[in-house]
Nucleic acid binder design. Structure first.
Length: 696
DNA sequence: GAGTTTGAAACT
DNA sequence: CAGTTTCAAACTC
């Protein structure tokens, strides 16, 4: 599927956009490179919660580190199987060619660099990308933890369970070995040309997870979109494309030969290169953010307007030099960017590249180099975790949110990454300071107890985020149990009414412990309870079923009813009335619909009246203001009120006599009330003007 | 807003 | 795994 316009393509380097080398990843290839024994599911295209659309798979390649280098790294993303497969070579020819040329296998990133991407949300499916130093046996070396070997490079891309996160975080060298076997895939990526050591690769990898932001009936298929950006030339500024909600819809139907980013409607074979990867969870909208930890590259975080997706753009050192201001807080423009739109099938995404005047970076004074806060004119803060060398800024990994996986740059690699839930970033944005402490469990930072505080630019939480759902009111659980909806959804509490809340950054240790406890108790604890059926909403059902006894499953106590789905055979409810033919249910649904319609009508009427009043006030204001004061409220006398009420009653009678529906009657009355107000205000304004003209 | 009901989660 | 307790949301008054 072609979803990118020629205009978009023209903005991108050909190396990035080139899809010619894309190949489907052979089933056997990744499997041969892994020591894991779990049955492979490289073809499966569904998400972890059984959205088995064939559109959820992405294959792609073409990762470029410079204008002269092209990586042929076909990869397959199989959300359903929690696996992303990256192949070292696009074809056997590529490998042979590299060998014959005497050049070592190339990887997207220089040796020593690793990319781990995980995501924890309700889907509980972390993604792990790794570019480890390993031995010459790709696939096996994943477990070798030989981080000093420079030669063989490959990637392991795993979408695994949440429970895998801890060991991954704990050890850089053993990241893969600690992953669950069945979730491990080994990927080889070969590059045709040597990678530039000065060209840090940039990944934007996100994963959607389920969130209650969406209607229970709103099922958003996994999204795979984005791009991997690289740059080695110090002259050419990096161009990063981030995904956004649509500002431009022109691309969707435009033909183009290059990017096909959507997994939604496109068969896997037709999906070509993916520059960044967003793997959607079931019905999810929550993205994870990759935050670079280590040395050189600066980062830019980009917020998708109106969405909860967070992106961190990793910028080359060249850019960093222009944006990082270690001397103190400052702002500066980022490179010019151009808007672009990427259609992803059902979910169309625009890709705004913020123009210089709309994005600023703030380099906090305490930080040594590249920690930045990026803001936009949309008043949304963008927190960028420091990109300073590890000895200077090292996050406390135990304090990072669930789902965070850190990938430092061992062995002199340039870039490390921390992938954190989007909400983590959200909360960082809301906090005036963020403390990042080092962790002794992290090899590269052992013994280092450095704290970095990231000052943000003062926007309130309300300005920076939009609460997707109701605040919790927990009092005893500290919001660290599944009683708490926020916690259960993998979110921080935000603007909640809870007491003694530990579901926040300040208590990340406790929070992580609680998460682990929950996962120990139930590995599915953070997965969506409402699965998605094959045929659409009708087949959606509660994963465990309800156990209602007294509500008849017709109240919101019932999780099925609350999710607006029917009870199913797996429910253990007693006296269930939440089934298709239930007359009680039909009546209830009818009433609910009627109530909803009425509310909408009333809202519309109020809006209209308010608009009328506002319009009237606007028109009378010049007259009033000319007199230097407000309208004299004394014009609203008892007589005026009585006359107004008479008018309203008359209108009501009129509506009644003409047998108008109630909603229409209400509308008529409200309109009449608006007219009355207009006359009153008009009279008052006129009187005041007259009074002023005669100096009374 | 206070009190009650309810069922999921947590605990034993 | 079953029974009980705890908890917070939904609901009622």
């Amino acid at each position: 599927m072609d979803v990118v316009s020629p205009e978009l393509n023209s903005l991108l380097p050909d190396e990035i956009m080139d899809t010619e080398a894309i190949e489907d990843v052979p089933q056997s290839q990744p499997e041969s490179t892994t020591s894991q024994s779990e049955p492979k599911h490289t073809r499966a295209l569904t998400t972890s919660t059984a959205t088995d659309s064939p559109l959820n798979s992405v294959t792609g390649t073409s990762v470029t580190t410079s204008g002269l280098q092209k990586l042929t790294a076909p990869f397959t993303i199989s959300a359903a199987n929690h696996q992303i497969i990256l192949n070292k070579v696009a074809s056997s020819q590529a490998t042979e060619a590299a060998k014959s040329a005497g050049t070592p296998p190339q990887v997207i990133k220089q040796e020593g660099q690793k990319l781990l991407v995980t995501a924890i949300g309700k889907s509980g499916q972390p993604i792990v990308l790794q570019l480890p130093h390993t031995g010459n046996k790709p696939g096996i070396s994943q477990t070798a933890a030989d981080t000093k070997s420079p030669a063989p490079q490959f990637k392991v891309v795993t979408i695994g369970g949440r429970s895998d996160l801890k060991p991954v975080v704990g050890s850089v060298g053993n990241q893969v070995t600690t992953l669950q076997a069945q979730q491990l895939k080994t990927v080889q990526i070969a590059k045709k040309t040597p990678a530039s050591s000065a060209a840090p690769i940039k990944f934007i990898i996100t994963k959607t997870v389920n969130s209650k932001t969406l209607s229970p009936q709103t099922s958003v298929p996994p999204v795979i979109a984005g791009r991997v950006l690289t740059q080695s030339s110090p002259v050419i500024p990096p161009r990063t494309i981030n995904l956004s909600e649509p500002h431009n819809t022109s691309i969707q139907s435009l033909p183009g030969k290059k990017i096909a980013i959507s997994p939604l409607k496109t068969p896997s074979k037709n999906i070509k290169p993916v520059q960044s990867v967003a793997v959607g969870g079931v019905g999810g909208s929550q993205f994870k953010t990759i935050i670079p930890l280590a040395t050189q590259p600066n980062v830019q975080q980009i917020q998708v307007p109106g969405s909860r997706f967070h992106y961190v753009r990793l910028v080359t050192a060249t850019t960093a030099s222009s944006t990082g201001q270690p001397s103190g807080p400052s702002t500066s423009s980022i490179q010019t960017a151009k808007p672009m739109v990427v259609s992803t099938g059902a979910v169309r995404m625009s890709v705004p590249i913020v123009p210089p005047q709309t994005m600023k970076q703030v380099a906090p004074k305490p930080l040594t180099s590249a920690a930045q806060v990026v803001t936009t004119t949309q008043t949304q803060q963008r927190l960028i975790m420091p990109a300073t060398p590890l000895p200077q800024i090292q996050p406390n990994f135990t304090n990072l949110p669930p789902g965070t996986v850190l990938a430092p740059a061992p062995g002199g690699g340039n870039v490390g990454y921390a992938v954190v839930p989007a909400q983590y970033v959200t909360q960082l944005q809301q906090s005036p300071f963020v403390t990042l402490a080092s962790s002794s469990s992290f090899p590269a930072s052992a013994g280092i107890q450095t704290q970095a505080r990231l000052p943000l630019n003062g926007l309130s939480a309300a300005e920076t985020t939009s609460r997707p759902r109701k605040p919790c009111n927990c009092t005893k659980s500290q919001c660290l149990k599944l009683y708490c909806d926020c916690f259960a959804n993998g979110e921080f509490c935000n603007n909640c009414n809870c007491n003694n809340c530990f579901n926040n950054l300040e208590h990340e240790t406790e929070r992580l412990k609680a998460i682990k406890t929950c996962l120990d108790r139930n590995p599915e604890a953070f997965k969506p309870k409402i699965g998605k059926g094959k045929e659409g909403e009708a087949d959606r059902r509660h994963s465990k079923g309800c156990n209602c006894k007294r509500s008849g499953c017709l109240k919101n106590y019932c999780e099925c009813y609350e999710a607006k789905i029917m009870c199913s055979s797996i429910c253990k409810c007693i006296g269930c009335k939440n089934f298709e033919e239930s007359p009680e249910r039909k009546t209830l649904m009818h009433l609910a619909d009627a109530a909803e319609v009425r509310v909408q009508q009333q809202t519309a009427a109020k809006t209209k009246l308010s608009s009328q009043i506002s319009d009237l006030l606007m028109r009378t204001t010049p007259v009033v203001s000319s007199g230097g004061g407000r309208l004299p409220y004394t014009f609203v006398t008892k007589e005026v009120l009585e006359a107004t009420c008479e008018c309203l009653l008359e209108q009501a009678k009129k509506a009644e006599q003409t047998h108008q529906p109630r909603a229409e009657a209400e509308r008529m009355i409200l309109e009449e009330f608006g007219h009355c107000l207009m006359r009153i205000i008009s009279s008052a304004g006129k009187a005041k003007a007259d009074c002023a003209s005669i100096n009374c």
